[in-house]
């Protein structure tokens, strides 16, 4: 293929991305750096505000906890799925993929029904006499974490199961015949071999939770703001475009750094494996 025709083929996409993504990003976000005269002084101001720092910490904390939960719940489940017969594997994967195909409003709405003041958990605990009055579960950080785990766990299971499928049963058999029990064999053989998949899954879950809007908005509301909901609030309710731009830049930077770090870990593991 001639280079010239290749350039023709990639030109439209490059023009669209430049005009409608890179240019708007630059035009809207760049001025925030010089918003207060000195470069980054608006950023310094942002970080010195305890309220905003709190939101930043909360967002990162939720992303870290959610990723950890997805790993703990997702990795063994993915292993289970990968060891099922082909028939069952198909069924279980379909069950995991199904929620991924539905929208996050619906999936968060389910948890409003479960966690709300009149929700299923509160009514159950009241009926059992464990509590005397409803406990506040909704509009807490806990609600956002559980909603986020619910949202991203399927992604972790599907991603990791895809990698584990390619690890043969003989690996476990070899480990067991050499005297390892099942748990040791899993931890020392299967887990390291599937680490690249786990890292990809974790990157997706972490960045997804960090930038999520719908779940924090519905399950955390205005009491538990995160960065994405803060952008919307700053821009639409307060008209503070600079503030929204600053938070946008911070979100993009954190996303890039996290992706870079996870890639680096994956690369190091690849080298060790080879």
């Amino acid at each position: 293929m001639k280079n010239r025709s290749a350039y023709y083929m990639i030109t439209p996409i490059l023009i669209i991305l430049t005009v409608f993504l890179f240019l708007p990003l630059l035009k809207v976000l760049f001025p925030s750096i010089f918003a207060e005269g000195y470069p980054f002084s608006a950023y310094v101001e942002f970080f010195s505000d305890g309220y905003y720092r709190g939101i930043l910490y909360r967002t990162v904390r939720i992303a870290v906890v959610t990723t950890a939960c997805c790993m703990v719940l997702g990795v063994p489940t993915a292993y289970f799925v990968s060891r099922c017969t082909k028939h069952w594997r198909g069924i279980l994967l379909a069950v995991a993929i199904f929620p991924m195909m539905t929208n996050s409003v619906m999936r968060s709405f389910a948890w409003i029904n479960i966690l709300g003041t009149n929700g299923i958990i509160n009514r159950l605990l009241l009926a059992l006499g464990v509590i005397d009055e409803p406990v506040k579960l909704l509009y807490t950080e806990f609600a956002i974490v559980i909603g986020s785990v619910y949202l991203f766990l399927p992604l972790m299971i599907v991603t990791v199961a895809g990698v584990m499928e390619n690890i043969g049963d003989d690996m476990m058999e070899a480990a067991e015949s050499l005297g390892a029990n099942r748990l040791t064999a899993f931890l020392r053989v299967i887990f390291p071999m599937s680490l690249p998949g786990i890292i990809v899954g974790s990157t997706l879950v972490f960045t997804g939770t960090l930038t999520a809007y719908t779940t924090p908005q519905l399950l955390g509301g205005n009491q538990q703001m995160v960065m994405a909901t803060l952008i919307y609030q700053r821009a639409m309710s307060v008209g503070d475009w600079t503030g929204a731009a600053i938070i946008s830049v911070i979100m993009i930077v954190i996303t890039l750094v996290v992706i870079k770090c996870f890639n680096q870990i994956a690369a190091r593991l690849d080298k060790r494996g080879a």
Binding site: I13, L14, L21, P24, L25, V28, L210, I231
Partner: peptide, 27 residues
């Protein structure tokens, strides 16, 4: 080039919406 084509995945959705609203709709 491939990472440029995939770059919309790196920009959070709410940010894409925000900059497009500011740049395209308002400006």
């Amino acid at each position: 080039l491939k990472s440029i084509f995939l770059s919309p995945t790196i920009v959070p959705g709410i940010v894409i919406g925000f900059v497009l609203y500011q740049f395209i709709v308002l400006s």
